[in-house]
Every structure is written in structure tokens, then in C-alpha cells.
Write a protein that binds this DNA or RNA. Sequence first.
DNA 1: CGGACGCTTCGTCCGTCAGCGAAGCGTTCT
DNA 2: AGAACGCTTCGCTGACGGACGAAGCGTCCG
Lengths: 248, 248
Amino acid sequence: MSGGDVDLAAVAGLIGDRTRSRMLVALLGGREISASLLADEAGVSPSTASGHLAKLVDGDLVAARTSGRHRHYRLASAAVAEVVERLVELAPAEEIGSLRASRRAAELRVARTCYDHLAGRVGVGLMHGLLQRGHLTGGDGGYEAAAAQRDAPASPGRDLDYRLTPGGQEFLDHLGVDLPQGRRALVRYCVDWTETRHHLGGRLGRGLRDRFLEAGWLEPRTTNRALRVTAEGRAVLAEEFGLDLSPS
Amino acid sequence: MSGGDVDLAAVAGLIGDRTRSRMLVALLGGREISASLLADEAGVSPSTASGHLAKLVDGDLVAARTSGRHRHYRLASAAVAEVVERLVELAPAEEIGSLRASRRAAELRVARTCYDHLAGRVGVGLMHGLLQRGHLTGGDGGYEAAAAQRDAPASPGRDLDYRLTPGGQEFLDHLGVDLPQGRRALVRYCVDWTETRHHLGGRLGRGLRDRFLEAGWLEPRTTNRALRVTAEGRAVLAEEFGLDLSPS
DNA sequence: CGGACGCTTCGTCCGTCAGCGAAGCGTTCT
DNA sequence: AGAACGCTTCGCTGACGGACGAAGCGTCCG
């Protein structure tokens, strides 16, 4: 018998472990994270973490990249991120903490840091605004059609060539954004798991985040990596990026 | 730390057991199944099955209905069905049984039941046909643009407001579709994993499935939840929905 | 070149949980 | 009423797998 049933259980079982699930959630940001950091995040010893990561890689849920003596892990595909996200939503309407947890989730959905740039509705909105105003060209600001084709490795985006226009440069000056120097790509994108769309990464993403924090348009929350949009921030987002945050 | 992490692991762990996953897959067909049948399906003793079912109910993945000395189980929601489908998709592309397996997969891709409605090319095609003929408005039948605009909660579609037009109602009458009553939303959508597009859920999806089976346009296959499109079915899909199935 | 560092492999321990059969409870049939 | 039936609860056993520390391997730094 058997043979026929796909290994649903294997995949789910892989996710269904406290430690591994913590790692996956940590990786939901879309960024690579080193083994030791993941161990820390999950609260286990390096050796334990290593074992779990090996399993996750073996199960094709995460992918690894070796760089010197470090090893960086990332989710293997957008499909994985989506499944994890769905599972989180299915998670028990928890008794206590339910309120707290869902509030936190809501906060994260609005704005959060993702590595060194911005994600959530604000992160996606920034990119959308730049595209719509012609400050950024290439791609489509969505996560759709061509991009969504199955074979997309959905690793941190490099395939869609976004470029900053001259007008875009002016716009950034106007906002007071200071782009960090370096060999790092100016524009890179991440798939946003709460929005299923792209948000800005690269030096541009970094510069925007820095400016938004510096100007007090966004404020870090104490608890997590969620950010609070201030009144001025709301105004800037509306005026300069055409982003209306009112519906929740 | 801690407290905050939702119980992803609990849900995934619930699914991540051979026996329970077999039960869930069996329930994907959308029909209620009695405890003893599920035990049989999963290949375990009644007592073992009972334990697992209790856990699934406790975790809100399946719901139970008592009828006399029987107890019938069903998936608790379409969201569960979707997650399970997604997980199946993530499952390793199995090596063995490749021929048999790939044929079965191909069958599933064409048409299958998903919970209580239709999925696969037929499911997606139905929705597309309704939209294109103006029987359904709102959204775009895709998984893109407008859809991504909103802060999609990424739960089974509720954010895109699809509505049935007067012409659509007539069309359904013409087809002989009887919409089930109830508080359940008329139109809901699921993202189809074989098609990366929306297919119909809700009462409309249910009604269409019922009609297609009743009229003999689709026939259940013995092996799984795949459906066979009959000659009349093919004609109906082409004429009424503009769906051509030829390029297998 | 030696030492610190990041990560993995190995061996061991222990908790958790799937599995079964026996027994219990309620329903249906004759 | 008695018996068959469907399902659940209980107690027990056995095994899978997660946890850690020690040790090993390769990389980076002074």
C-alpha cells in the first residue's frame, strides 16, 4: 500500500517542531541568516541548530550558501514562505495572548524592518510609489505573472532589473535620503510575505529606512522589529508616495 | 522572546504525522467520512484513529458531527484544505512510481475536488469564464495586480469582492445550478496550486460542483479526488465557459 | 604559524507520542 | 431485552527524535 501517498507528513513534520518553526519564522523576512544567529533565534545550541538546518535543507525548505567559515540560510522558495505564513494563520486562535499575538501580527503587517530595509505595507508602498511616479523603472512592482512562475527560485531578487531614474535621484535628494556607498546593488527586492509583493532592498532600501527613522517618520517599537508610523510619517507617505494607510 | 511565537509548530506538527496526514488527504475530497472509514483509510486501529481525530478536532483542523452511533468528520474550513494542498505541493517530487504518479498528477491538474468545490484547470476555467462573460464582477480572476493591491490577509480570499451579476444568476439557472442556502459567502476564492490562479469557492463553487457531477459533466475517478471530464462536460465547458481543454 | 572562530559530526540521554488491545458507553436492530 | 455495532477512553509498551557536550574540520586573523 502506501507508496501512493505523497509525503505530506514529512514536510509538515519538518515544520512541526518548535525549534525548526522558529527558524522558519525568522527566515520569513526573506533574508539570509547565519547558522549561529538562527541557533540564537531558536534558543538552542549550535550543534542542535546545525542538525535542524541540515534537515530543513534536506527537505528543500531552506537553502544554504557557504561563505568563508560562515553558512547562510534562506527559505528555499516563495512557496515555502507562503505555506509557513498560511500555517501561522491557521494556528489556534490562541486562548490568552491571542489578542496580544494578533495585535503584534497586525503591527508587523503595517511596517517592520527586514534586515536593513523596510517591509510590510509601508515597505511595499514605498516601492509602489516610486514605480508609479516614475522614479524607479523596470519590473512591475508586483509579484505576479512572470515573476510568480513556478520555477522562480524566489531568492532575493536579482532577476528583475530595477533602475533609479534621474527624476528619482532628485526625489531622493528632496526627501533627504542619503544613499550609502558601496559595491552593493542599488536596488534589490524582497518578496514580502504579508503582502505577496516586492519591497525595496539594496542600498536604496537601506537609505530609505535610515531616512525614515532619522526623520522620525517611523519609530521602532520596543518589542519586536515592527515599526510605528508617526503622524508626520503618515503625511509623507500620503503626499510623496501616494500611500494611504487608513484602512487599518 | 518566546511568548510571541505563534504555535506554528503545533499546527504543523498536527499535520506532520503519517496517520493524520492520510486522514486529512482523505478529507480533502470534501465529503464527510466516518471514524471507522478514516481508520481504514489510514491503516490503523479504530482506537488509534479515534485518538488522532480527537487531536485534529482539538486543533481545529477538522470538525465532527455525531449522527446516531456514527461520527462523521470533515475538514474544519476551506483554509485547512488550502494549507494541506499547499503542503502537498511542497512535498518532494517523488522519484518512484514516476509513471503512475505522474499520470495521477496530470489527472489532478485537470480537474479535482478541493474541499467542496472544483479545482485544477476546470476549476480555474470556470471562474475565468464567469468573469469574462460578465457573470461575475470584481477581482480579475488572476492572482495579481488588484489582488495584491490590498493588504491581503492571505487567508482564503475574502478581500476581493466578487459578486454575481443579474446575468450571472440567469446563467446559473440556465445551467441548472442550484445554489445552496446558508450564511456562507456566495463567492469565495482559493488560490490554485496547479494554476497559480483563483478558483471558485463559497456557495457558488459548491453549487457548480454539485451540478457538474449531477449532470455527468464530470465523473469521480475511483482512485483519488481527481475528476474525469466527460464528452458532454467538455462541450459544456467549451460552449458555456469558453474553456478548451485540448492542449492536455 | 598558532589560535580563535564558525559550523558540523558523533555519541548519549531522555521525553514524547504513536500504536495496540481491553474495557466502557451509547445507539441500533431483532 | 439482548446482542451487535460504532466509537471512545485507558493503560501499557516501544521507538523515533530532539537536546546537549565533546571532538573534528575548515577558515580567518594576528
